[in-house]
Every structure is written in structure tokens, then in C-alpha cells.
């Protein structure tokens, strides 16, 4: 039983820089994923404007009957979106772990240009590992 469906990474200007499906159940094609990322980015910005209480940092969770979307925005503006099965536990911890993996294997890769599409083998490997460990 797989509980983590997909990971998207969105840069601070709303561009999709990484998408990864962990299961064959949830397939979104790349164009739709790009659209989803930029829509989410704007929605996130709007939601923080909507808040009656100042200091809101935007929408963090989207619940639907067949999936749940967790959004984690770092203080530097990068967003990690994780689409999971409903009622999957410990997703915020996994997102934090993914952020660590990102800072270790993407940002420290000298061939990676900041804000550009992520193509890092080590990131793929360690991401896979983190997700697999979460699923057991």
C-alpha cells in the first residue's frame, strides 16, 4: 500500500522545478503539473492576503476525498507540495526531511543553478529513500 503519491517543488516565482511520482496510480502529465504549480503559487499568495489576522503564511493543507495535499513553504520562498493518501500520518515531518535532503543534495551541487529545474541524481536517490522509510 503506497501512501505518498507525488512531490512537487515550486520555486519562489511559481515555476515548477521538480515533480516526481512515487506510484503509478497518480499520474499527472507535465503540462498539468506546471499549471498546477503556478495556480497553487497564486492561490497561496491570495490566501495569505485573505487572512483577517495579520502574519498569515498561506494555505498549508488541501483535503479532498481521494487525496490530501500538504504544502510547506520555506522562509526563503520555495514550496514543497506533497500529494498523499488521506489520513497519512507524519507528513509535516517528511516534508521537513525532504527540505533537508534538498539543501544537502540540490543546493550543494555545484552544477545546479538556483531556481532552475532540479536534475540531481543524489537528490533522487535520497528522496526515494526518505519516502520509502516513511512508508514502512
Amino acid at each position: 500500500m503506497v501512501s505518498i503519491y507525488t512531490l512537487y517543488v515550486v520555486n519562489k516565482s511559481g515555476g515548477l522545478i521538480y515533480s516526481r511520482d512515487f506510484t503509478s496510480v497518480a499520474k499527472v502529465d507535465l503540462n498539468d503539473a506546471l499549471r498546477l504549480a503556478s495556480i497553487w503559487h497564486s492561490m497561496h499568495a491570495i490566501s495569505s492576503q485573505l487572512s483577517p489576522v495579520p502574519g498569515c503564511t498561506g494555505v498549508e493543507l488541501l483535503e479532498a476525498d481521494t487525496f490530501t495535499l500538504h504544502c510547506f513553504q520555506t522562509l526563503t520562498g520555495t514550496k514543497f507540495l506533497l500529494v498523499v493518501e488521506p489520513n497519512t500520518p507524519y507528513v509535516p515531518a517528511l516534508l521537513q526531511r525532504i527540505y533537508e535532503v534538498y539543501s544537502d543534495y540540490v543546493l550543494k551541487n555545484p552544477f545546479y543553478e538556483v531556481e532552475q529545474v532540479i536534475k540531481c541524481e543524489l537528490f533522487d536517490e535520497h528522496l526515494e529513500l526518505a519516502v520509502r522509510r516513511h512508508n514502512v
Binding site: T57, T74, T76, T78, Q96, E100, L107, V114
Partner: peptide, 17 residues
């Protein structure tokens, strides 16, 4: 610096100042 900040934020788990 622009790359290191993310590592610091990820590992120190500090919140907004």
C-alpha cells in the same frame, strides 16, 4: 550564502524572526 541559508533553516528548525 544564498544556498547555505536553506541548509541552516532546514537543520536548525528555527522559525520566523
Amino acid at each position: 550564502g544564498i544556498r547555505l541559508i536553506d541548509e541552516f533553516l532546514a537543520k536548525s528548525k528555527v522559525s520566523r524572526c
